[in-house]
Design a protein around this nucleic acid. Structure first.
Lengths: 191, 191
DNA sequence: GCGCTTGTTGAACAACCGTCAATAGCGTTA
DNA sequence: TAACGCTATTGACGGTTGTTCAACAAGCGC
């Protein structure tokens, strides 16, 4: 098998296994057996277990960022809501995998978290890039350490609320939720 | 040594080690050696490594909830800020251990997360208990699934922002931060 | 003293990570 | 076609660590 497809196969398999186990519960042994290869071969493609974990998470984050491409809409809040909606839809369609990814990144070591936070950063940055300067002003945003702190907190809130809501969508309709989450940003930074 | 004190010794030791290592980096081997006992004895007190982890986290969460007892102040927002302040102070004084705890809980298995979320639930519930019905109304709160969803998100935001701020307090003063975090709650739920 | 419970140990077993020398398949070139 | 090199792949070995278990010892009631 060609190196590329083999690498891809192993990463894909790792991502799949992530749905049922924690990241470090995926033993090289089980993975190799599941893939029909020897343990040694895994060390040929990835230096060690840690590197394999990094590769799996990196791939998943890249997919997430790639799939949730933003649209361009006039009203800043509406635009924000649509972007959040795309993100939410992705979570809906990949619930178990997404949850596993978040948990793995949150509980992992520094490198793992760095990869994940970089991805989150890319998502939030993109949301604001699409929003023009005038729109940012309308949202009460400016670039300062405090704002970055609060926006980061808002993003963390997004993740938790979205996971909770996808887990049990009763209580509030999708559109209502998106509106509330979008308006929560100025609600926080202007408070 | 009496069973109680031995259990306590082991849990305390586990909590201490949590400051320098990840939860599952605490090997039974090192723990036993550090405590001056054999590995086998650990299995006499705790069924397995997993159970030991659960006990350590449970104890740490209980301490956290116990230490951050609320005071009673007239103004709801002021009261909220003070409660958050007590929480923040705890994080400042136990930074590395607290971070390890949060990460371990976030990345751990279902049981671990359940324990942690129960603790967070106790913290938020307590904040609202202390606040009277009139105060809750002033904060824009009521008891509905949507509110619980958003309040949970607000709590998640608190955790992230507080960890970030303790890690690097430049950019905003403590009192300012507490005020913003408190006002963020009505900012979110009234948005 | 005798049996019973229980804290405690150390050895043995099992699972798993990581290494490495060896092999086998395959394309290239003389 | 045969020799050669490259590389994907293997299988065995060593070391660490979680887990089990039979045995020991120390206290305690009878």
């Amino acid at each position: 098998m060609s190196p590329e497809s083999r690498r891809e196969q192993l990463l894909e398999l790792g991502t799949q296994l992530l749905s049922t186990r924690t990241l470090d519960e995926i033993s090289i042994e089980v993975l190799a057996e599941e893939a029909g290869i020897s343990r040694g071969l895994l060390y040929h493609y990835f230096g060690n277990k840690q590197d394999f974990h990094l590769a799996v998470v990196r791939r998943a984050v890249e997919q997430l960022v790639a799939i949730t491409a933003p649209r361009d809409i006039e009203d800043p809040l509406e635009q924000l809501a649509v972007s959040i909606g795309a993100y939410l839809d992705y979570v809906v369609e990949n619930y178990t995998g997404y949850v596993s990814l978040v948990r793995a990144a949150a509980g992992g070591n520094e490198e793992l978290r760095a990869i994940y936070e970089e991805g989150r950063r890319a998502l939030t940055d993109r949301i604001f890039e699409v929003t023009g300067p005038a729109g940012l002003d309308a949202l009460g945003l400016s670039d300062s350490p405090t704002m970055r702190l609060l926006v980061n907190g808002w993003a963390a809130m997004l993740e938790v609320v979205i996971i909770d809501w996808v887990h049990d969508p009763r209580g509030i309709a999708r559109e209502d939720l998106l509106g509330r989450l979008a308006r929560a940003l100025p609600g926080i930074v202007l408070a």
